[in-house]
Write a protein that binds this DNA or RNA. Sequence first.
DNA 1: TATTGTTATACTCTATAACTATA
DNA 2: TATAGTTATAGAGTATAACAATA
Lengths: 158, 158
Amino acid sequence: MTDPSPGTDATAVNALLGYRLRRAYAAMMADFAEVFAPMGLRTSLLAALLLIESNPGIIASELGATLAIKRANMVPLLNELEAAGLIVREPAPDDRRATALRLSPKGQAKLPEIKRRLADHEARFASRMTAAEYALLMDLLGRLQEDAGEHGDQSPKG
Amino acid sequence: MTDPSPGTDATAVNALLGYRLRRAYAAMMADFAEVFAPMGLRTSLLAALLLIESNPGIIASELGATLAIKRANMVPLLNELEAAGLIVREPAPDDRRATALRLSPKGQAKLPEIKRRLADHEARFASRMTAAEYALLMDLLGRLQEDAGEHGDQSPKG
DNA sequence: TATTGTTATACTCTATAACTATA
DNA sequence: TATAGTTATAGAGTATAACAATA
């Protein structure tokens, strides 16, 4: 299962940035699932946990906007984290429509181990390049995710 | 919708390679959909078309293995391409279990315009970096998608 | 016994519409 | 009127199990 088909010419797709992104992302997702599926954690749940830790009291809609997850899709996600006892939902102090999110004591207790496994997971891929290459990769991925549309032509040409 | 929340500290997730990959991939998918959804094309359909063009007569299971798409999931995908009149399924000459795939005349006629739009789409993102940066990015993404598992410790250290 | 194509099925992610209660 | 949370729903991607025909 290493080489899919030596006789197949895959250059047409391998030359595509979008295709390489997809395959690289899939590889990291597979490793992530291997590590965190036994704990019942998926990427969206873990990302929410990390941001709630860094931003205690953050409201659900703000968390969703930061993670690019629609409000409607945040609900079952937060339900899951709450049912697992990792977070608590509180009424927001300044807005009675909103829900403020915090880690529960159990969530705080579990985060160190989660972060350790996450760091191992990340290192498993970062170790395939030099520190300089890694820094540039993070920078370039950041440029790709920026919204370039709606501004006309601002690209200074490469 | 450019800045989700200026008051939110997102460094915990922005420091993750997996998260940056996800966001960069999502940005390219959004642009891809804007271009190709009106034509009824999705990434999997387009990738299949490109590989069938480069590998006329390729059998379905080999195409699936190359694209990392399970055989069971290839069936509705090929049904869709066939129903759209873009490909034809033929009996494989050497194996009566297999199905050989080829572009139909209509598929061949449509591919040039598809490739043009695809190149524009790709250039919209590649233009955000220098040629050298682009080359390194493609290389690094290729390293990430390689199966590093099952070999023990072969990483030469960065 | 293993593989190819296929069907059926299930789960996750994502997207939209509509409702309520607040603002 | 606009927003926060919620519900319901639908589409796409992905995964496994099982079957018939063939290798």
